Simulated assay, not measured.
Amino acid sequence: MNYTLHQLQIFLKITELQSITKASEELHLTQPAVSIQLKNFQDQFPIPLTEVVGRRLFITDFGKEIAQAAERILNQVQEINYRTMAYQGKLSGRLKISVVSTGKYVMPYFMSDFMAEHTGVDLIMDVTNKTKVVRSLELNEVDFALVSVLPDKLKVDGVELMPNKLFYLSNYDRELPKSPSKKHLFERTPLIYREPGSATRNAMEGFIEKNNFKVNKTMELTSNEAVKQAVIAGLGCSIMPLIGNKNALRNKDLKIIPVKGLPIITNWNLIWLQSKNLSPAAVAFLEYLRERKESIIKEKFDWISDFG
């Protein structure tokens, strides 16, 4: 056997995505290059690692076992690199953060300078809905989670980052009465929702239920970006976070409709399990946040005050 670490990385990515095309895109390699490396890797085993059925790539049971072994090997190699950097006095390690979907407009700004200063730290950031974020935290799969609503059943510590404001948004050209009634906004106008499990959806449903509004026509989409584009296209209105809509508001693609009781204001919190034994990289990041968060908010998010 004479396989390389590069081949292990490529095969592991193929098994994760079950696609040579997607693997080549994530690895920034050409598809033929990935195919050649897969073939060279396969040639070292007498048992098939993959099979193609109806143009779909599947990983064999043997291939899955090899992928698990490859992951262990690559993790050990990464650990060697981290230990080497540590002996050189450099901060090293891996940060795993799970982020609710709207948080993708927030978290990178709190990470960028830290990552630039500590090149030995690797970042893995998963963007998904609140239910999955809380689940990954509960299972100790991540160091931190970014949420706008704190989980009820977990004992967590956290750092409050900044407010999260949700407004009733319409496309700019939608014709509404000068002072539209809540009946008009919530019963006559189609409303666009996020999918179940989303904190944005929970906040929107809570507001509607609290005010006893009846919603007759709805649409459900699976990301904030999809909701934004649907509202811009005129398919309906929605209660949406201000974060992620700055350009659409400034470009007059969207407009805020004043509604009593809005905006809904929560706070972005970076949280971790109280029982979590934080790594040196995680501790350093928390220290960085406590020192720099106010200046980051002022520099990167001062525009929020322009919209109330």
Rank of each mutant, 00 (worst) to 15 (best):
V121R: 02
L191F: 11
K217A: 06
Q18R: 08
T266Q: 15
F58P: 01
L29F: 05
S112A: 14
M85G: 14
Y105K: 01
G206R: 03
D61W: 06
I304M: 13
S238N: 09
F144P: 05
Y82K: 04
N140I: 04
A282K: 02
L139S: 11
V121G: 07
I14P: 13
K183H: 14
V52C: 07
P151G: 09
G93S: 08
E51K: 15
E175K: 14
V159P: 08
L286K: 02
D253W: 03
K246V: 02
S170K: 02
L123T: 08
T21L: 10
A203F: 11
D122A: 12
M240H: 08
V34D: 06
N277K: 13
K210N: 15
G261H: 04
N216D: 11
N216L: 15
L91E: 05
G244D: 08
A203V: 08
V259T: 07
F213P: 12
V53Q: 13
P280D: 10
L286I: 07
R94N: 14
T21Y: 12
S179W: 06
T60E: 09
I66N: 09
V142H: 04
T128C: 12
K214M: 09
Y288F: 14
S148W: 00
P46M: 04
L262Q: 07
L262I: 05
L176C: 09
P108C: 09
L154C: 11
T4C: 10
Q31P: 10
N212S: 15
N267Y: 07
Q229P: 01
E220P: 02
R292E: 13
K260M: 09
S101Q: 11
G234F: 00
L139P: 03
G244K: 02
K210G: 07
K293T: 01
K178H: 12
N245R: 04
L166E: 15
R188D: 15
I296G: 13
F167Y: 15
E220N: 12
K183W: 12
I59G: 10
L29A: 05
S98V: 13
L91N: 05
K276R: 13
G197V: 01
L95E: 15
E294H: 04
